[in-house]
Structures are given as structure tokens and as C-alpha cells.
Nucleic acid binder design. Structure first.
Length: 460
RNA sequence: GUCCCCAUCGUCUAGCCCGGUUAGGACACUACCCUUUCACGGUAAGAACCGGGGUUCGAAUCCCCGUGGGGACGCCA
């Protein structure tokens, strides 16, 4: 059995979206599963839409997701290889060479300054009512596509098509096939939107006298709301966005793996090594999947929860730095402790700034609804006054000590812990929800706690 | 319009290939439990085999038709 060689061939014409990410991922998984080679090829044949910025987004997103390429543009330790260059804009000489080969077989002709690929068969002029023009139809035998996911698919290709534009630039169908031949690609794993193109590609492979690779057309990702496939403009479509929002790449990878593939049974969260072991083409679904941001967020939470605290803190710090979240004069240890406290409570790192604001500064927003609710019943002023007195002499050395002190206070008055917890929380944090009140008191320290309680009581 | 692909809870899916299940899990939603708030966790509930024909003792599973969804029909990729 020859070595598996797969390629991911994006074109840098826009931001890197989730559909591209999954195509890249499935190619990568298949390469890793089979011990094959994962090639990155940049399809930047001149169309005036390519940009260096988008190219970097591709590199950046792939690396963030952990999809390292074995051959391709040399970036950050990835890439290199025998079949370069890997940017189509640098492969003009290859296309010229293959074009000559094709010309020699008599399968090309010129028309309107462009070079066309000639199909074999009887021809007739037909008026196409849909496209409102006369076209030349060719009676050809159906092209057979051997698809690892869909089985045998037949499609009739019945019109010649352009392979080199009148400006001299070769067209996608041509360069795609030429590069797949030149790079010895064995499996073409791509989105189902290419299935209809595949008959063109098979015709080209045959014209070159090359056995076509195994095709594997994976289902599309549909937009969450409304009809159609996910596009770059849809909510949650861009990989960059998850990166910015502090999602864990492992979680994103795990989630998109599950869009169109399943390890079988009840399992969903599984380490990438295991996905690599279990992944195979025939197990890929044939039906399109609708994107679901809630489930994505849930997967992220699962990974966040499982992260060792030091790692969580490191990621959170990085997020803070990137987003200019100011932790004031807080010490490293204090910041780490606050973040670790938040880890099991939040769904995503992006919630952190709002969730922890009161730990960094004396000016933090107050949730007025929560304030009204917390102070609307009982005797908040009295509870606050009692608490202030208690805190003055309280042992703040541990959560347990604080808890014991508040419980003792409550008991002495025939009240419950909750009678103090509620007002204390809104006074100290401005929020209805958060970490345990004992931890908040301990971390804030006596002075700040008393000051905040007094200030809050004065406002009642 | 033509061609191609697809069809299990609202969503992602297991089961389908190799017919016999109380059709399973997860997200979301609801209730309850845990609890010091909020989460997490736990328990429970609701929720699906697109329709119609076949084949068969028996069909989610095999076949056909319909319908629905998606894609392609560029000198874009």
C-alpha cells in the first residue's frame, strides 16, 4: 500500500472559517490516522482577491488548531517538502509544462483568447434557457467518481470548460488537478460543494492518463439560523473569533470533529490522540450538519473545567493581556487565586473580566436588579452593620474560619448564613452571582471589605 | 430549470452495512435534588425514525416513488 498523501488547499480570499477548518481537520486526521502526509497548498491563482493578510490568517488558524502540515509553505516549523513550491502563484512553470502535455494529446483548443479543455463525443448547439445563452453540449459517457464517503457517484460532464484564462492565468479546475498529480495526492478530502466539480477533475485526470485519487466529499456545515451553508458572515463562523474569545483550541477541534463524524456510541469529549486512532473516512456522515454555538460553548466549558489550574490561569492571563483587562496593583499570586476561583464557575474565558471586575478595583458596576432583590427584604442595614463589626475582629486566614465566624454571628441572632451572604455579595461585588462569599471576603481583605460594606450601607 | 448529494428528538448524533432495541447519548428547554449565591454535578420529564408504496412473519434498517433540505451549473476557488 502506497503512502497516503492528502492536501488542504485553501485560497486566501477571506477569513478562515469553520467549514475550512473542518476540511483541514479531516485531512489532517486522515493523514495522522494512516501515518500519511498532510500537505498545505495555497490556491492563490491570480484573481485579484488574494491577500497576504488572509494568507497569514490561514497559517495562524491552522497552527492555533494544532493542524501542523508536513509539506507546504515553510512557516513556524511546518512545511517544506519535495513537491514545492506550495503556492500556486509560484508554480506557473509546472502548469505550463502540464499544459504542453495536454496540448500534445489534442484535448485543448483556443477560443476567445482562452484555452479550453475538449470533451470527447458528439456535439450539438443547445439554447440553455436557465443561463440564457447558446452552449455546446457534448455527448459523453458518465464520469465515475469513487467516493470514500458516498460510494460510487456518476455525473455526466457535457460542456467543454476553460482551463487557462485569456489573461494567461490557469483556472482552478486545471491547477487543482495538475497539483494533485504533481504532488502525488492519493486522497482528495473536501467539501461536498465540490462534488459537482469532480466530474471535470476526473475528466482531466483521465486526459493526463493518470488514475484519479480517491475522493471523499464531506458534508457541509449549515448556518445556525436560516437556510443555506455557513458563510463567513455568520455568527461563530470565523476561527479567528474563537481565538479572540479565548476558546480552547482543543475544544474547538473536538467540537468540529463531531460535526459530521462520531466515534460511535455515547462518547463526545475525547482527546485528539484518540480521535486520530478512531477517525476514518467511511465513518464520516453523508448529511449536512447545522452549527450550534451553545454546544460549542458547552464543549469549551468541559475542556476549561478539565484544565489544570495553572494552565487555566495562564490562558486567562493571556486573555486579559490581549484585551487590556487591568488587574490594578494586584499581585501575581492574588490574580492567580482569583482566576482559579472563577475557573469552575464560568463557561468561557470571555466571561472572566465581568466576573472578576470587583477584585481589581473599587469601582465596579452594580447590577441594580440584583441590588433591589438583595436589599428588598429583611433588614439589610442591620445585617450589614453586624457584619462590619464581625469582620473587624474576624479571623480571615481561611474560608473555613470566615464561614465559622459568619455562622456564629447568624446563630447568635437566630438567623441563617444566607441572611448575610446575600447582602454581603451585592455590597462587595455588585453582582448576584459569583464565587463563594467566604473566598471573596478572604481575598479582598479586612480593609476593603469593611470599606465596601460601609459605603454600601450608607447608600441604603 | 438541469444535474448531483442527503433525510432519526428543536440541534449534533448512536443504531442502518449484516431487518426483531422500552430507538440510546449529548446540547437546549422544564421540574426537582445538592448548595451560602451562581455554576458544576445528580435525578426526572417532554421530545425523533419526512410521507406513500413495496419486499418480508417482521422495516428506522433493504428497494421504488413523492416531498423536503443542501450543493453545483463563472475566463471565482
Amino acid at each position: 500500500m502506497s503512502q497516503v498523501r492528502v492536501r488542504f488547499a485553501p485560497s486566501p480570499t477571506g477569513f478562515f472559517h469553520i467549514g475550512s477548518a473542518r476540511t483541514a481537520l479531516f485531512n489532517w486526521l486522515y493523514a495522522r490516522h494512516t501515518g500519511g502526509t498532510f500537505i498545505l497548498r495555497i490556491e492563490d491563482t491570480d484573481n485579484a482577491r488574494n491577500s497576504e493578510e488572509f494568507l497569514n490568517v490561514i497559517y495562524d488558524s491552522l497552527r492555533w488548531l494544532g493542524l501542523n502540515w508536513d509539506e507546504g509553505p515553510a512557516v513556524g516549523g511546518c512545511g517544506g517538502g519535495e513537491c514545492g513550491p506550495y503556492r500556486q502563484s509560484e508554480r506557473a512553470h509546472v502548469y505550463r509544462e502540464y499544459l504542453e502535455k495536454l496540448k500534445a494529446t489534442g484535448r485543448t483548443y483556443e477560443k476567445d483568447g482562452a484555452i479550453w479543455f475538449k470533451l470527447l463525443g458528439e456535439r450539438e448547439e443547445v439554447y440553455d434557457d436557465f443561463r440564457k445563452k447558446t452552449v455546446t453540449k457534448v455527448k459523453t459517457a458518465p464520469m465515475v467518481i469513487d467516493d470514500a464517503i458516498r460510494g460510487r457517484v456518476e455525473r455526466v460532464e457535457d460542456e467543454d470548460f476553460v482551463i487557462v484564462r485569456s489573461d494567461g492565468n490557469p483556472v482552478f479546475h486545471f491547477v487543482n488537478v495538475v497539483d494533485d498529480i504533481a504532488m502525488k495526492i492519493t486522497h482528495v478530502i473536501r467539501g461536498e460543494d465540490h462534488l459537482s466539480n469532480t466530474s471535470k477533475h476526473v475528466a482531466l485526470f483521465e486526459a493526463f492518463g493518470v488514475k484519479p485519487p480517491v475522493f471523499a466529499h464531506i458534508p457541509l456545515i449549515l448556518k445556525q439560523n436560516g437556510p443555506g451553508k455557513m458563510s463567513k458572515r455568520d455568527q461563530g463562523a470565523l476561527i479567528e473569533e474563537y481565538q479572540k474569545r479565548g476558546y480552547l483550541p482543543e475544544a474547538v477541534v473536538n467540537f468540529i470533529t463531531l460535526l459530521g463524524w462520531s466515534p460511535g456510541g455515547d462518547r463526545e469529549k475525547l482527546p485528539i490522540e484518540e480521535i486520530v486512532t478512531l477517525f476514518d473516512l467511511p465513518a464520516v456522515n453523508q448529511s449536512n450538519a447545522r452549527f450550534d454555538d451553545k454546544k460549542m460553548a458547552h464543549m469549551n466549558m468541559l475542556y476549561l473545567l478539565a484544565l489544570p489550574p495553572e494552565q487555566f490561569v495562564a490562558r486567562a492571563r493571556e486573555y486579559f493581556a490581549r484585551n487590556g483587562v487591568d488587574t490594578g496593583a494586584a499581585s501575581e499570586a492574588y490574580v492567580a487565586e482569583v482566576l482559579a476561583l472563577a475557573q469552575p464557575k464560568i463557561k468561557g474565558v470571555e466571561e472572566l473580566p465581568a466576573y472578576t471586575a470587583y477584585f481589581w478595583s473599587e469601582t465596579y458596576p452594580t447590577d441594580e436588579k440584583a441590588r433591589a432583590k438583595a436589599t428588598g427584604k429583611g433588614e439589610p442595614k442591620a445585617r450589614l452593620a453586624e457584619l462590619i463589626e464581625a469582620v473587624r475582629v474576624m479571623d480571615l486566614g481561611s474560608d473555613a474560619a470566615i464561614e465559622a465566624a459568619i455562622k456564629a454571628l447568624a446563630e447568635a441572632r437566630g438567623l441563617g448564613f444566607g441572611d448575610y451572604q446575600g447582602v454581603a455579595r451585592i455590597a462587595l461585588t455588585g453582582l448576584a452571582a459569583g464565587p463563594s462569599i467566604t473566598s471573596i471576603v478572604r481575598l479582598l481583605g479586612r480593609e476593603r471589605v469593611i470599606a465596601r460594606l460601609e459605603r454600601f450601607a450608607a447608600g441604603l
